[in-house]
Write a protein that binds this DNA or RNA. Structure first.
Length: 429
RNA sequence: GCAGAAGUACCCAAGUGGCUCAAGGGGCUCCCCUGCUAAGGGAGUAGUACCUGUGAAAGGUAGCGCGGGUUCAAAUCCCGCCUUCUGCGCCA
């Protein structure tokens, strides 16, 4: 949600931003917002004046009652009553207009960064930089599920019977590797000065509606029957929700947190879940990082954050690239965003393993996350980024470390978490 | 999960319908006096959001856990919810 003051002072800037995102159908929202804002202010001024008079008259009644001047008091009461209806109407309209205005403001996208490439959709995202040489081995790399099955690491069939499509049993060394990656990612972020946090895996509906739009909620969130609770789709939900409505002391900023959680998603959206494999599933686990900082620091944090993810993947020997999201592919709350993509030697292309976003003050304004300054308070900036999300990252892992004999090498950084193992070998049939 | 109690500002806390647009104390800031293991006096102290308005000002509204209701008027009465504490119960 952008600052209404910005919209008042420079509506053309807001319109230009909408054009850059190819959301021309939203252009009328700017004038709608201006009109509603004007109406709301008129109503507030009038309502405030009526309340001021009511306060004064009520005080007068109190005085008269004390002096036993009942009749005079009744006369003043009548005056207040006469205004009551008008005030009630104004209050009702104020609520209605404010609600509408909020709805319109929520649909106006955040101002995007000057560095964001202009483009219609994800096909126009721009590769910025590659890390490690993307290699294709001289043998054919099988589909990840086949690799994992050969290693005795996955049982999808049983999961279909117990839970349906989109779930998995990970077993043996692959399950251990999954945990190892999470533990390594956790320690990696702790090493960068982040505070480790395990948040609630369920949140109330008011938190859900605070952190996402209704459409997202409908397409992603699982509701607990008979409770006002939802399973989180990412720990960002409970991590950011933690600070909703809070004013943070300036001295405590930046808040740099790394959180672990399982993530549950309906994946009702465009692609749905895959028939085969573990690329897009209903349940996965993720190590996440979030930063809440002062506005002047958010761009520097954005750069640091995506680079941490790159550094983590490079340390495991997985080639990656940074892909800058273009204007049209940027979600409305985002100022800028990039994906970290890992190399797939099977598909001979990169695929998404993480996403880093700077939401500037748009999310903080919506949720009321502030910090105290000498002169009052201001909205924080919020950022979030994936550290590692297995089992998806396991796809990149096994594809890149697969050897001709079907075994998979364990990179050195993970060996301490694997009891010193150096490789995972195919299970003898 | 059941029962009881509670939620007021940075902290403690008074306050059962109207001179409370929240008393008092602690703390904090400033001033005075004193002069060093200290003590006393005075002044200020609700952060915030929104609105009107200006050169600067100034004013108004909201706000006593949250949301409704009753009333001319609500911290106060009524309803729902949240949270905390105590006891009982249940449970890794």
């Amino acid at each position: 949600m952008i600052d209404i003051a910005l919209l008042r002072n420079d509506p053309e800037l807001v319109r230009e931003n909408i054009r850059k995102k190819f959301q021309h159908q939203k252009l009328p929202l700017v004038d709608e917002a201006l009109a509603l804002d004007g109406r709301r202010r008129t109503l507030q001024t009038e309502g405030d004046a009526l309340r001021a008079s009511r306060n004064a008259l009520s005080k007068e009644i109190g005085r008269l009652m004390k002096e036993q001047k009942r009749e005079e008091a009744e006369a003043v009461k009548a005056q207040v009553t006469a205004n009551a209806e008008r005030l009630a109407a104004i209050e009702a309209e104020t609520d209605e207009v404010s609600e509408k205005l909020k709805g319109v403001m929520m649909r106006i996208p955040n101002i995007i960064s000057a560095d964001t490439p202009i483009g219609k959709d994800d096909t126009e995202n721009v590769e910025r930089k590659r890390f490690l040489e993307p290699k294709v081995p001289d043998f054919e790399v099988p589909y990840h599920l086949d690799i994992l099955e050969k290693l005795g690491g996955i049982d999808i069939d049983s999961a279909r019977r117990t839970s349906g499509q989109g779930f998995y049993y990970l077993t043996g060394d692959i399950a251990r590797l999954h945990s190892a990656v999470l533990a390594y990612a956790r320690d990696f972020m702790i090493g960068k000065g982040f505070t480790y946090c395990i948040p609630p895996f369920m949140i109330r509906s008011d938190v859900v509606s605070g952190v996402m739009s209704f459409e997202e909620m409908d397409g992603m969130m699982y509701k607990i029957e008979g409770e006002d609770l939802y399973l989180i789709g990412t720990s960002e939900h409970s991590m950011i929700g933690r600070f909703a409505g809070q004013t943070v002391e300036e001295a405590k900023l930046p808040l740099t947190l790394t959180s672990y959680s399982p993530c549950f998603r309906k994946e009702k959206g465009a692609h749905g879940i895959e028939e085969r494999g573990i690329y897009r599933i209903h349940q996965f686990e993720k190590q996440e990082m979030i930063v809440i900082c002062k506005p002047e620091d958010s761009e520097a944090w954005y750069e640091k954050m995506w680079n941490y993810t790159v550094e983590l993947f490079v340390s495991m020997g997985i080639p990656v690239r940074q892909l800058e999201c273009c204007s049209g592919d940027l979600a409305d709350l985002k100022y800028r965003s990039c994906d970290v993509e890992a190399w797939s030697p099977r598909q001979k292309k990169y695929f998404e393993v993480g996403s880093c976003s700077n939401l500037t003050d748009a999310q903080a304004r919506r949720l009321g996350i502030r910090y105290k300054t000498e002169k009052g308070s201001a909205y924080c900036h919020t950022l979030n980024n994936t550290v590692a999300a297995p089992p998806r990252m396991l796809i990149a892992f096994v594809e890149n470390h697969l050897r001709a004999d079907g075994s998979v090498e364990i990179p050195e950084v993970l060996r301490p978490y694997m009891g010193g193992k150096t490789e995972i070998t195919p299970r003898q049939a």
